[in-house]
Design a protein around this nucleic acid. Structure first.
Length: 366
DNA sequence: ATGTAC
């Protein structure tokens, strides 16, 4: 059983509950390989930061609730000084973003256009449930670790990163299929239906991020034409909750950045340290995957209990980052996360190379 | 991870 598990972090460093999940999953005959990322923590069924190769079956719970959750990134090609001259200006832009993009539990009052969903399983309730919120949820950020970040890369160019998922749409699809079984045979109607509906959620999550990306570029003063060009030329899109059918089996990633050879990805650190741009090395031992973040050291509850708001404010101010520093974001403070350098070093040259790094200027959160 | 909704 243990030879199925390949971990980028010492197993002794993993929280007991997540470790139990790892052994439970690895003990299943149907699971051929299990790769563990350094930001691993307890999730529903398969741990977050877990990548599982499964034989002939697809598992809704191995993909998780936020199907298609992931990152979009662009490099505007404009230097920081050309857009941001003062802190006041940055604060104004942050305000404009909060005004244009619903965050947290909020969705749009006025719906945006998107092609309707029809459940491949034929379930009328699921179809209705998804379509009900489809247009209102598009272009909304969500909560938790989801964020919008405007930052400066190593060359001084303004880059935009968005971390968000499929909102209620993916959640509805995920819950519906999780009730159908832990593993759905690929050669079954329900398995095929899940694949189709999961793919819809992946597409929707990308559209969700792109909608926000276009709005942000507009707020930064780019014309529609310029925005299109920036996206076309520089977009990195990657999602860390999905399943892919491969020749070796069904590859499920839950909280893991795809790192096929040459594949670009984004690994976020935390609100203060920004994001890393990665290129995959296609390391099959680790199922061509990398971490999807730094990983928490404090649970959300503990973070709110232990972290001092003033301390949080101090580090964000000294890095001159405009961000929502409040009791509601204490659980997202840098101290709630592992030291990103260690997490990166555990992966550099093994599953990815780092090709760029972006320091935050503005961080938007739910 | 998520719509004030069984």
């Amino acid at each position: 059983m243990k030879d199925k598990i390949k971990s980028l972090i010492d197993l002794s460093q993993i929280e007991p509950e997540a470790l139990k999940q790892i052994y439970d999953v690895a003990s299943l005959d149907i699971v051929k390989k299990l790769a563990i990322m350094p930001d691993v923590h307890t999730g529903y069924d398969l741990c977050i930061g877990g990548v599982a190769l499964v034989e002939d079956h697809i598992s809704p719970s191995f993909v998780g609730y936020d199907i298609g959750c992931g990152m979009c990134f662009v490099n505007t090609g404009v230097k920081k000084e050309e857009i941001f001259r003062s802190r006041k200006e940055r604060e104004k832009i942050a305000q404009q973003i909060y005004k244009a993009i619903p965050v947290g539990n909020n969705i749009r009052k006025k719906p945006l256009d998107y092609k309707p969903f029809k459940s491949a399983s034929g379930d009328k309730n699921l179809t209705k449930k998804v379509n009900d919120k489809l247009y209102h949820s598009l272009g909304t950020l969500g909560s938790g670790n989801h964020f919008i970040e405007i930052g400066e890369n190593l060359e001084g160019y303004v880059c935009i990163t968005i971390h968000s998922g499929s909102r209620n749409i993916g959640h509805s699809i995920a819950s519906y299929y999780m009730k159908k079984g832990r593993f759905l045979p690929l050669k079954s109607d329900i398995g095929q239906a899940y694949i189709q509906d999961m793919n819809f959620a992946l597409e929707y999550a990308l559209e969700n991020r792109l909608t926000m990306m276009k709005e942000i570029l507009k707020i930064l003063g780019f014309t529609e034409k310029e925005a299109k060009k920036i996206i076309k030329k520089t977009l990195i899109n990657e999602n860390h909750n999905h399943a892919v059918i491969t020749e070796e089996g069904v590859l499920h990633r839950k909280g893991a950045t795809p790192a096929d050879e040459g594949q670009l990805g984004i690994i976020p650190a935390n609100m203060r340290d920004g994001v890393y741009v990665t290129v995959g090395l296609g390391n099959k031992e680790f199922l061509s995957s990398a971490s999807h973040g730094a990983g928490r050291v404090l649970s959300r509850r503990k973070a709110k209990e232990l972290i001092d708001l003033e301390e949080f404010k101090k580090v964000m101010d000294s890095a001159d980052i405009v961000a929502k520093v409040s009791p509601s974001t204490l659980d997202e403070a840098p101290f709630a996360y592992k030291d990103i350098n260690q997490v990166i070093e555990a992966q550099r040259g093994v599953v990815v190379e780092i090709i760029d790094q972006v320091k935050p200027v503005i961080n938007i959160k739910g």
